[in-house]
């Protein structure tokens, strides 16, 4: 920001800082408006798991699939499936197709299994969680994950809009007043107070 001070032909003090400040405020609004007005992409949430959470299967499935809702654009996808001893059963890299992440499973025996997933999204956020299933050869063949199960999972997610906290609101209001006062100070000509 350049600034010049001087006295014009009228004897009034001139300053280039005020136009510069005005330009800054206009630029700030121009840059900030899209942040306020742009629609936020739908949040990514786990909608369904196959095998379903806590399902008991007759045998280890060929793969585990995680279906997500929202605008899923991930730069990193990690899925690990382990048996009760902690041995990794998942094999190879998980694949992402549409909103579904699939990871192949190797051979496994009866017992409990833990699915752990972590996705790093393109916008910097991450989503992670766990699911469990079990294998019992005596169990009847399991049906694929149903729509009901998917709805039940989706309903577990909810938006965390913080309640308007009085302290936050007071501090924000104080700051807003101070900002206006500072802008007024910077835009008006300095003076001497007798």
């Amino acid at each position: 920001m350049t600034e010049t001070h001087g006295r014009g032909a009228t004897g009034k003090r001139t300053s280039a800082s005020r136009p510069a400040l005005a330009a800054f405020v206009i630029a700030l609004v121009a840059v900030g408006a899209p942040a306020l007005l742009t629609a936020e992409p739908a949040p990514v949430r786990l909608a369904a798991v196959d095998p379903a959470a806590d399902a008991v299967l007759a045998a280890v499935p060929e793969s585990v699939a995680l279906r997500f809702t929202g605008d899923l654009a991930a730069r990193e996808v990690h899925v690990t499936v382990a048996d009760a001893t902690g041995a990794t059963v998942s094999a190879g890299q998980p694949t992402l197709s549409g909103g579904t992440v699939t990871t192949a499973l190797g051979v496994g025996g009866p017992g409990a299994y833990l699915v752990v997933y972590h996705l790093l999204l393109d916008d910097g956020r991450s989503i992670s969680g766990t699911s469990r299933f079990a294998v019992d050869p005596a169990a009847p063949p399991a049906a694929p994950n149903t729509a009901d199960a998917a709805v039940a999972l989706a309903d577990t997610g909810h938006a965390h809009v913080p309640a308007p906290d009085p302290l936050n609101l007071v501090l924000t209001a104080v700051a807003a007043v101070l900002i206006l006062a500072l802008l007024a100070l910077l835009f008006t000509r300095p003076a001497v107070r007798d």
């Binding site: 900030g32 942040a35 306020l36 949040p43």
Partner: peptide, 30 residues
């Protein structure tokens, strides 16, 4: 003036965030 502009820009960030949460009703992470 330059220093005050940095301070004001920082406050603009905070006020924008407050507007997004309390007026637009967006979840805090967004």
């Amino acid at each position: 003036n330059l220093f005050m502009l940095v301070v004001l820009a920082h406050w603009a960030e905070h006020l924008t965030q407050a507007f997004q949460i309390y007026v637009l009703g967006r979840p805090a992470p967004q």
